[in-house]
């Protein structure tokens, strides 16, 4: 940060002194666009306006390089904010809480056939611990699509999916945006709670074979088993 200090308080024009000071300052910003007149400024206060209109003096201070630099920086911050808003609205995995009657009913019953996958029911984890679920279905498909997501806050809950004893990938962080797996339609599907980010591991699973969502919860180190039985 470079700053030029003036010793003279003389009200006479000192344009020559300004040029001398500029030469001494090796790191000065380009001054080609700076327009000097017979008025000089001392510590930010105008001392002599006799030879310059007040409008001209305002224009000079408005257009100086430092002010321009500040405004350019403000435009950069505005651009960053707009990019952030775009990311939050379009790319971010976080979802809004659903407060519809169907969501309220699902929150109480922990099961839903009407809510879409990826529905968020809570703004914060509610320390809910569910249990094992037995699913009877009549689907003739050998495999089905399983969607897993966090129906509360994205607070760093990790789960691992195990299908009939075979892990389907590494433990991963569940978010409001569902993650898809292909699982068999019979057997045991385990959801293992690997890490609790706070407030319990709240997750939801949606099975494509019966189009049903189960809102469940598990403690860290424990698991919930979904037993799929074809009728």
């Amino acid at each position: 940060m470079n700053e030029i200090k003036k010793d003279s308080t003389d009200k006479q024009p000192i344009q020559g002194d300004l040029l001398q000071n500029r030469e001494l300052n090796q790191n000065a910003a380009p001054t080609e666009n700076r327009q000097y007149n017979n008025t000089y400024y001392n510590s930010g206060f105008v001392n002599n306006l006799e030879n310059t209109s007040e409008k001209q003096s305002r224009d000079i201070s408005y257009n100086n390089s430092f002010t321009k630099r500040i405004k350019q920086g403000a435009w950069v911050f505005l651009a960053i904010i707009l990019v952030g808003l775009f990311y939050t609205s379009n790319i971010s995995t976080s979802a809004k809480v659903d407060n519809s009657p169907a969501a309220q009913e699902a929150l109480e019953s922990h099961i839903s056939t009407t809510l879409a996958p990826g529905t968020r029911l809570l703004s914060k984890d509610g320390n809910y611990v569910g249990g094992d679920v037995v699913i009877n279905h009549s689907s003739e498909q050998q495999e089905t699509n399983l969607l897993v997501w966090d129906y509360a806050a994205e607070d760093g809950d990790y789960v691992q999916i195990i299908a009939n004893g075979t892990p389907l990938g590494e433990p991963f962080m569940i978010k409001n945006k569902p993650v898809s797996f292909t699982v068999p339609t019979t057997g045991d599907i385990q959801v293992v709670g690997t890490h609790d980010g706070g407030g319990g591991i709240t997750y939801a699973v949606h099975y494509g074979m019966n189009n049903t969502t189960y809102f469940n919860g598990v403690n860290q180190g424990e698991n919930n088993t979904y037993t799929l039985i074809r009728e």
């Binding site: 700053e3 300052n25 910003a29 400024y41 100086n64 430092f66």
Partner: peptide, 11 residues
């Protein structure tokens, strides 16, 4: 390349 320079005569 573009140091931030403030000079008192800018006001």
């Amino acid at each position: 390349i573009r140091p931030i320079v403030y000079q008192r005569d800018d006001r």
